[in-house]
């Protein structure tokens, strides 16, 4: 009960504060739209919001899923082999250090016209790094005794991975996944905004900008925030289910 009530109250207070701030300062729409201006914008474009919201959502999720698969595989490779870790790490760090805003136009040109592919690709590229790093750290810092209790019984490397290394890494993995969700979301929107004739909430934002429809731009921001919150909490629920044991100690 409290878990629902407190966040809802916080949101309501925030909206009231926002409305009040705009009202007191008498800001025009182009400076800052107020929550009461947003409803008409939402309502006018409700179908666009639904279809474009869906576009943004599925691309983000697909990009994220690819990031999970690639990130976990890379993490496993780096976690189990020291040589590969030493070799791959600088490459990954360098790749991650490139601001993705500069990669977006390059990718957009590389696969010109393939809007879905571009967007998913950026969402993936921006979000796999924390996953790979967390999995590799989780695996490489596994205390040798944990391996030894199973190895001494003649267990295979695969058994040790499934029974010990993987579950032990799950809390770190979910921590990284929470970061990755937000990053993937940023990636999707960057591409949607930049691509000509794009779709998705990012494109809607862009069209709000070209038409100087400020309430629409703010409405897009709000719906992005809501999608982001929803995705984040999906991860939180998954974390509770699969790595809930890690929470207990802090209670």
């Amino acid at each position: 009960m409290r878990q629902v009530f407190v966040p809802v109250l916080a949101i309501v207070l925030f909206l009231l504060f926002w409305e009040g701030l705009v009202w007191v300062n008498d800001w025009p729409n182009y400076k800052m739209a107020s929550p009461s201006d947003l409803w008409p914008a939402f309502w006018r474009f409700k179908w666009l919001f639904l279809t474009f919201g869906w576009e943004t959502l599925w691309r983000t999720v697909v990009g994220l899923l690819i990031a999970i698969v690639v990130g976990v595989l890379l993490g496993m490779v780096m976690g189990f082999s020291r040589v590969l870790r030493e070799g791959l790490y600088p490459l990954l760090v360098g790749f991650n250090a490139i601001p993705k805003a500069t990669v977006v136009p390059i990718v957009a040109l590389m696969f010109v016209g393939q809007h879905d592919l571009n967007t998913v690709l950026i969402a993936f590229m921006i979000s796999f790094f924390p996953i790979a790093v967390s999995v590799s750290i989780g695996l490489s810092t596994l205390e040798p005794e944990y391996r030894d209790i199973l190895r001494a019984l003649g267990a295979s490397q695969m058994t040790i991975f499934w029974k010990i290394a993987l579950p032990k890494t799950l809390p770190e993995f979910f921590g990284a996944l929470k970061v990755a969700v937000t990053l993937a979301f940023i990636g999707t929107n960057l591409m949607e905004i930049v691509s000509p004739h794009g779709r998705g909430l990012g494109a809607l934002f862009d069209s709000g900008k070209t038409n100087s429809d400020y309430p629409l731009m703010f409405a897009v921001l709000i719906s992005l925030a809501m999608l982001g919150i929803a995705l984040y909490y999906v991860v939180v629920v998954l974390e509770r289910i699969f790595a809930g044991w890690a929470e207990r100690q802090t209670d």
Partner: peptide, 19 residues
Amino acid sequence: TSPRSVVGMAFQNPVLLEW
């Protein structure tokens, strides 16, 4: 020549699996 299941081991660290 390789680990055999006739052995049981315990260390200073109890290494219990938290999950």
